[in-house]
Every structure is written in C-alpha cells, then in structure tokens.
C-alpha cells in the first residue's frame, strides 16, 4: 500500500516564543516500489518530513497513511507504532555513531528482538541482514562494532534496520562523509536492498548528480513546502527556480542546456549521465560518426556492486 500524506503541517517548540514552522501543508503520495529522492537545502523541512513517516514525530495537523496505518493528531485510537516501525526502516545520517552493543550480531539483532522475536529468530535475521549488506556474519558477527572500518560500520548500522525487514526504507544522506568509492558501494547496496528486501526506497540527498543516477522521482522541499514534485524531465526545465532555492541542476542537464544555446540539440528528456551519454551517441551517429553503445556511465565497473 502506498504512502499518502495530506495537509501535513508541523512547528517545533509550538506555543513558545521559539516556535518555528518546519512543514507547511505538505501533500505527497508515494506508490509502492518507487525510488524517491528528497532534496532541499538545510532547514527546508525534509528531515522533519521523513521523521513523520515512521512516527518519530507525532502529527500536529494533517494526516498520514503508511501501509494501512493511519496517523493523525488525535490521541485515540493509538496507531500501532510497533508495526509502523517494522514497516518503515529509518537510517539516520552517520548511522555508525548509533552502534552501541558489544558485538556486531547483538547490535543488529536489537531491532528484531524489540519486535518481540525470540533470541534465535532475532539472531537468524541479524545474520541474514549482515549477508544482505555484504558482510560475513561468521567473520565479523562476534567482533566489537568499534573495531570495524568506517564503511563497515555504516553497513552494520544499515543491517540493523534491514533486520526488521521494512517494506519501506528511508535513508537520510546515506553517503555523507564517505570517500567516492564508499559512496558508490553504498548506493549499489541500496539498489540491491530495494530489489531483495525493501521495495520502496526514500533517500535524502544533497548531490543532484548522484541521486539522478538512481531515483525515479525527485521531491524538492523548500521552506517547509513541497516546491517541486513532477517528472524529472519537467523539473529540470525549472533551473532558475531551483537555483533560487539553493539547488543546482545536474551537470548533465546544464551541459545539454548550454549545447542547445550553441545550436546543438540533444533532446530535452536528459536527466542523468546515462541519458546524456546516449543522446551524444545518437547525435554522433546522425552525423555519420561511428561509435559503440554506452549502456551506462560508471567509473568503477561492476565491482562497485
């Protein structure tokens, strides 16, 4: 079942002199199986928005439906928060800072245990989750999380969320602070998790070039509102408005736009590097230049998987 958000507004420190509006009448619908990118500069409301989706922030006004669970400002009936949190997995920024247990396997099993599973079941799920994020539970399961490298720690933290088998996976800047190779690996991991475990994925990102390689829809927040929510081909025609709210066009789109000004038309449906590469190949062939096909533009080849 999809996620439906209607008229959601929220203010921090409501009713005090420090009251600060964070969300202002937000309407969003997200269907099952989508890969959503959420963008917006710091303070635009995107983190407040995602924290509503698994009940970390209680609704002040408006309503939310997540996989059949209804969230409103009413106290009763109380929503099934346990079910909500196993349905919507949330990976925060720098999740590796939240590892706490003595061993990796115990840390990852913490979530499923809290869902009420037996110790054996919880550990089995934890082992499965570790394998899903590309770690060997036999090798690192009994080690202390703090002995691992930064990239491994982040994977363990993601495994802790995956162990609850969420249908919807939300990640807040999952590649922040990683080196380029680590970024590539985490983004490939997220694609694998989408295929094998959590069909709906929502990622907050600051990097247009990165997110357009993966997402099939972008939702842009500004000043607590949804500023843009439309197909990317349409969205990137609003370059100036995006710039006004602190977002740059993906470099592939600005390249295509600038070439258009010089009289070379590559088409107006380019949203990422793959699209630009294919358009260049097509344009070259139309001009009688021979060249091979480009399936996708990657740097590390298949080993990034």
């Amino acid at each position: 079942m999809p996620i439906v958000v209607k008229g959601l507004s929220f203010a921090y420190s409501k009713g005090t002199p420090f009251e600060k509006k964070a969300l202002d009448c937000v309407d969003v619908e997200i269907s099952d199986g989508q890969f959503i990118g959420i963008m917006g500069h710091t303070g635009s409301g995107k983190s407040t928005f995602i924290q509503h989706l698994n009940g970390l922030i209680k609704v002040q006004s408006g309503e939310i439906d997540v996989d059949g669970i209804h969230l409103t400002s009413a106290r009763r009936p109380k929503p099934d928060y346990k079910k909500l949190r196993s349905t919507v997995g949330m990976v925060f920024q720098y999740p590796e800072y939240q590892l706490f247990d003595e061993t990796v396997i115990k840390d990852v099993a913490f979530g499923p245990k809290n869902l009420g599973l037996s110790k054996e079941e919880a550990f089995a799920r934890a082992a499965e989750a570790l394998r899903l994020v590309g770690l060997d539970p036999d090798e690192i399961g009994e080690r202390a999380p703090f002995e691992l490298s930064g990239g491994q720690k982040r994977r363990v933290a993601i495994a802790g969320v995956i162990a609850m088998r969420p249908k919807i996976l939300i990640l807040d800047e999952p590649t922040a602070g990683l080196d380029p190779y680590g970024k590539e690996q985490i983004m490939s991991l997220i694609c694998r998790l989408k295929r094998e475990c959590s069909p709906t994925v929502i990622v907050i990102s600051h990097d247009m070039d990165e997110i357009t390689r993966y997402a099939d829809r972008l939702i842009v927040f500004s000043e607590g509102r949804v500023a843009f929510d439309m197909p990317m081909q349409e969205l990137f025609k609003h370059g100036q408005e995006l710039e006004a709210i602190g977002l740059e066009l993906p470099s592939c789109v600005s390249i295509a736009d600038n070439l258009r000004l010089k009289g070379i038309e590559l088409g107006d449906d380019i949203v990422n590097m793959d699209g630009l590469a294919k358009a260049v190949v097509k344009a070259a062939r139309e001009r009688g230049i021979e060249c091979g096909d480009i399936a996708s533009v990657r740097w590390y080849g298949e080993e990034g998987e």
């Binding site: 190949v281 021979e290 060249c291 096909d293 480009i294 533009v297």
Partner: peptide, 8 residues
Amino acid sequence: DALARAGL
C-alpha cells in the same frame, strides 16, 4: 571516459 571508450 565512457564516450572515449565508445570510440568518440
């Protein structure tokens, strides 16, 4: 890199 490898 990708364009060069495609022979352009």
